[in-house]
Amino acid sequence: MIEMVLDIATGVLLAGGSFFLLVGSIGVLRLPDFYSRMHAAGVTDTLGAELILLAMILQTGFSLITVKLIAIGFFMFFTSPTSTHAVANAAWAAGVRPLLGKDLKPGDGEAGPKDGAAS
């Protein structure tokens, strides 16, 4: 009985995780510029990964594998914003400017450093 409930829960979590992973990938393909693509990649890194890891944790019961999966989850939780920020900051420092506003005009980086104007 519990086995079956766990299996169903795992299936739901896996389906949800796969859905968010696919949505994130589609978003990375569809969005118009680098800065907006970052947000789509964020969907994959956070909810998609967490749901899949949670599904795997449900299937292992409690063992060393569970602890390892939790460790992977924690590690992703800490590193994914860091690497996203690193990419964004590198692009910003190199003078890449986002498209802004409803009509997606190239931004002038008014909030940015004084020297960066090229896009």
């Binding site: 994130g24 990938s25 990375v28 680098f34 693509r37 970052m38 990649a41 994959t44 890194d45 990964a49 992703m76 994914s80 690497s83 996203t84 990419v87």
Partner: peptide, 8 residues
């Protein structure tokens, strides 16, 4: 960015 997401 794609590489990082691919790695995840």
């Amino acid at each position: 960015l794609a590489l990082n997401a691919f790695g995840t």
